[in-house]
Amino acid sequence: PSVALFNQDTLQQRLQALIEGARESWTYAIFWQSSYDYSSGATVLGWGDGYYKGEDDKAKSKAKNKASSSAAEQEHRKKVLRELNSLISGSATPATDDAIDEEVTDTEWFFLVSMTQSFVNGGGLPGQAFFNSNPIWVTGADRLASSPCERARQGQVFGLQTMVCIPSANGVVELGSTEVIFQSSDLMHKVRVLFNFN
């Protein structure tokens, strides 16, 4: 029944409500949706939807970004963004758009790359949270960097300092921030209210 009540249309609104209404400064929220693959017998968490808010301190994020991504990396990111923009707009030639030629920040890139990812049978941070039915809250760049989960390490490389995965009825809500944010029962409660569809 919980799956039947799941409403894709309101998913974006709920992700937005979760981080826009939070006291803490979250950079993004992603809902990883669970599905069962009958051919392999595996439970897969795939991209459901995501809301990217960005960093509050733009100057700080730009400085950080400059340190971590080379000119070649920036060119690569912009090229991919241009191609994706063409794909979405349906045009055959890559669009020339001032907005696309603006620097692609590390967290924007991390969010975009996340759309291509999935987690099988308890793999990765979201998979572990779902498989064990327990939230995972990792605070601090050091802890992310030393995590056994590839996604947590990747998040740290792209400037995140906090990553959280909270299991819900048919998936996992993941939040990330470039700020250091400690565990709060308030956020857990909000996820329970907004994402437990039954």
Binding site: W47, G48, D49, L84, L87, A99, E102, F111, M115
Partner: peptide
């Protein structure tokens, strides 16, 4: 660029649109 599954297209379109807004507001 690999084909984007339909379910992710909406997310991608929204992300690109919001990015445009963010850049305009810089």
């Amino acid at each position: 660029v690999a084909p984007v599954p339909q379910a992710r297209k909406a997310s991608l379109a929204r992300f690109l649109e919001k990015r445009k807004e963010r850049v305009m507001n810089l």
